[in-house]
Amino acid sequence: MAADPRPQVLAGGTDFMVEVNYDHRRPTAVMSLRRVDELRGWRRHGDRLTVGAGLRYVDMLESEFEVSAPALAQAARTVGSPQIRNTGTIGGNVATASPAGDTLPVLYALDAEVTVSSTRGDRVVPIQELIVGPKRTTLAPDELIVSISIPVSKGPQEFLKIGVRNAMVIAVASVALVVDGDNRHIGCALGSVGPTIIRCSEAEAMAEAEIDWDRLHLPDPRVYETFGAMCAAASSPIDDHRSTSRYRRHGVYVLATRALMRAFEPGA
């Protein structure tokens, strides 16, 4: 393992330390953000939330945050164990850019914008442009994720995650569904079923056209499964030691169907 001369930016460190403990990474310099308080908080201004990159998963479980970002809160609750949720951060989840990162499908579904900072100044990047592959981002070596901006919840939000155990498990497949009742928009994104998070644009457009937006109902109950099938078709899963591509695609179908059913009751 070649030593990396650049300082490693340490947020929660939960991914980083596993690599160090197992000799997959040899740090020579570390810049810890653990006590940079300005990265820790979140604030609401108007209809948007600015979430500090250092916000821990446990902080997202607080009721005030949950009201504004229910799917993100639910995703945070599925992350690892209490110990991990007390340590890991949303900024770390983004920077690690694992397709199994639990908060990422929610951030994709919400069209999150990531503020990135360096000595050259700040830039704002849509999350789907920041993450370009499994554990690959467009972050420059000297750039740091400062905050993430998402819209405040304006409708039902769901996050469902399949794991082979009832707790503390890496996602085999996950689905985030967010509804913007004001703008009559649906966002849906899939985790663990492709090299990056996958956005389900065609399924979203189909469902948006079928929903009775005045009542937030779905007149045609066949649409639930059509939606699930379109999301499954958008997925691009692989076989690995955690599951099979066939099951993952099927799982997306079931989760997306259920997510839409939870968000919109049937009937005109």
Binding site: L10, G12, G13, T14, F16, M17, V18, V20, N21, Y22, V30, S32, R34, V58, G80, S81, P82, Q83, I84, N86, T87, M168
Partner: peptide, 26 residues
């Protein structure tokens, strides 16, 4: 030593964490 078992749990500033995932120097 990968944060999966909790055997190394300690409190850091009152938070329950896995000490195997804490960089000691930090």
């Amino acid at each position: 030593e990968e944060g999966e078992c909790g055997s190394c749990s300690v409190l850091v500033d009152g938070r329950l964490v896995c000490s195997c995932l804490e960089l000691a120097a930090a």
